[in-house]
């Protein structure tokens, strides 16, 4: 999931208004931008949607890393289309967040100076072509787990953005799986690449769902507001249950010696990711945090003259059309 550890804000609002707001949510009504909403609801959503949007944008980098080295024209085209979709997701989500009274530029500045986060997963490097398969299969797969329920979230613009995004994400996941299939049916070197990609992306993918429920302080309020639909552990379990048979089908080994099917629960038992590593990644010490932020900052700084130039031109055009009236 692209939003992790979203701190929810307590609300200082009028208790009667709060109760009426909660009743609307409990009835399953959608909250729209012009409706009254508690300040905490608004702020938490900005943080959550903003983080999700930033993840789409930063997420272009690990895949962009292979666009210029894609092994065939068709793979190059598919990867370009995917990266373009992700940028589009970023755009829808920034638009959804803007309905809450914050601008895209403000959110961008907050990403660039570290006040806002993006998903920890994009701080891991993509080292071989098989990583393009693993990212689609596992990362888009984990994102879908989280985003499908969010199509029913209480905030209207967010729910509608999710509907559009989910369709494309499941397409990405199938394409990622297809890359893995080709590798697993290929040469020894390709199989080795595929296994290596799973080894490196398995635990970071499990981390995408955020800390274990017992350590997740902010879930209760967000779940009451229906901006978080399931707990972190529920989604993680669902992801493991879905993904393990897929790995078996590919002939790959999930890098968890303690992974076992539990007849009683009807779920897989699995090893939790290393939460100390997760906290380090969030603190800026993942393998690629500095590279990613440098790349985004450079793009933004080097693009300043373009944005300013186009704005200056638009202003001149407006002046001309006003003068003509």
């Amino acid at each position: 999931m692209y939003a992790q550890m979203i701190k929810s804000e307590a609300s200082q609002d009028d208790p009667e208004k709060l109760a009426a707001f909660q009743a609307r949510i409990d009835r399953g009504e959608k909250i729209e931008p012009k409706d009254w909403m508690p300040e905490g609801y608004r702020k938490t959503l900005i943080r959550q949607i903003g983080q999700h949007a930033h993840s789409e944008i930063v997420g272009q980098l690990p895949e962009g890393n292979w666009v210029t080295r894609a092994p065939t024209l068709e793979r190059k085209a598919i990867l370009l289309a995917k990266v373009q979709d992700e940028a589009g997701h970023g755009l829808y989500l920034y638009c959804a967040a803007e309905t809450l009274g914050i601008s895209r530029d403000e959110m961008t500045e907050m990403l660039l100076d570290g006040r806002m986060k993006y998903s920890s997963i994009f701080n891991y490097p993509t080292l071989t072509w098989a990583d393009m398969g693993a990212v689609g299969w596992l990362v888009d797969g984990a994102a879908i787990m989280n985003q499908v329920p969010l199509q029913r979230t209480s905030y209207g613009p967010y729910a509608r953005a999710m509907v559009r995004i989910c369709k494309e994400e499941s397409f990405h996941q199938r394409q990622g799986f297809d890359v893995m299939m080709k590798m697993c049916q290929g040469s020894e070197a390709q199989k080795r690449m595929a296994q290596d990609a799973l080894n490196r992306f398995w635990f970071p993918s499990l981390m995408m769902f955020g800390p274990s429920d017992k350590d997740s302080k902010h879930s209760a309020q967000s779940m009451k507001w229906r901006i978080k639909m399931n707990t972190n552990d529920e989604l993680r379990q669902k992801f493991v249950d879905q993904t393990v048979p897929q790995a078996e089908y590919l002939g790959l080994t999930v890098p968890d010696p303690d992974l076992t099917w539990n007849e009683e629960t009807g779920h897989y038992d699995f090893t939790e990711p290393d939460w100390a590593e997760f906290m380090e990644v969030l603190a800026g010490n993942g393998p690629c945090n500095r590279d990613r932020m440098e790349a985004r900052n450079r793009a933004w700084d080097e693009g300043a003259w373009v944005r300013e130039g186009l704005m200056a031109h638009a202003t001149k055009q407006r002046a001309v059309s006003v003068a003509a009236e």
């Binding site: 944008i57 272009q60 980098l61 895949e63 962009g64 666009v67 210029t68 190059k76 085209a77 370009l80 289309a81 990266v83 373009q84 940028a87 589009g88 970023g90 755009l91 920034y94 895209r104 790349a295 450079r298 793009a299 933004w300 080097e302 693009g303 300043a304 373009v306 944005r307």
Partner: peptide, 21 residues
Amino acid sequence: SEWCGRGPALEEDIALANTAL
């Protein structure tokens, strides 16, 4: 395609990828 994720604005990222595609 070398511009991937490095454009001056989100709209330009999308347009560059689309043209490359």
